[in-house]
Design a protein around this nucleic acid. Sequence first.
DNA 1: GGTCATTTGTACGTATGTATT
DNA 2: GAATACATACGTACAAATGAC
Lengths: 137, 137
Amino acid sequence: MSIDPRLHTPVYVQLADLLRTRIEAGELSPGSALPSEARLTQEHGIGREAVRMAISLLRSEGLVRTVRGHGSYVRERTERRSIELAAGSAAIARMPTGVERRDLGLDEGVPVLEVRNAQGEVEILPGDETELIRPPR
Amino acid sequence: MSIDPRLHTPVYVQLADLLRTRIEAGELSPGSALPSEARLTQEHGIGREAVRMAISLLRSEGLVRTVRGHGSYVRERTERRSIELAAGSAAIARMPTGVERRDLGLDEGVPVLEVRNAQGEVEILPGDETELIRPPR
DNA sequence: GGTCATTTGTACGTATGTATT
DNA sequence: GAATACATACGTACAAATGAC
């Protein structure tokens, strides 16, 4: 599997597709490190910007987590706590603000659930650790 | 309000903060166009990459939508359809795959709701047009 | 603590491609 | 076709975080 700059598909998308395939195949397993930017740059003969855009794309999909000065890692599947949606409550999904992301310790590419109960009280829940349920009657 | 490259905060974050403030103040109202990349570059005396990173940040927060060859626009608040979470169902929030984004016509920075009913059937709903509710008893 | 190598982050410049008007 | 605007992609340089020693 290789990258061809002459194709219609942008180089960075080709690299993202390639890495995503390796992740989904389990070749890059949850928790394991992606090759460094330098390695990806050299091995595929492309520029660093294309490499960074590819990884940024995977981050925004919630597949990858990047630690500055350390590397990028395949995100592990988190445990989800089941939260019961109470009668008279409503929930929406949206991206967190910068403040919310810091407060909740959310990775990039992770939405939040905003739940509003019958009293109008709002709660913000981390999207990757929450499952909203309504119990069977 | 101005941008100072000497501050600890990166230039692109400063610009994003500045634009976000103007959006939240209503100075840049929903549907209206942000200044072009060229204008922002000139007016703030910064490079184009910093401008693009700022807008990219706002996009990932779901605040802004960018149309190639046209410009970037403040995203309008969409109407939300209320969907009842059925008994025995569960819902999670996550980012869409590339395919899902195209199929649902989602802007960047918009998550999906993945609802699984008691029969195990899965439905993917656009996060910016959906509100999950459980009716009052 | 301090230094070093590694790795990602920020920021600039330049050039060309592609979509819209 | 022309003008405008965003997208892709290269190169360069330096800053900042991390881990190893």
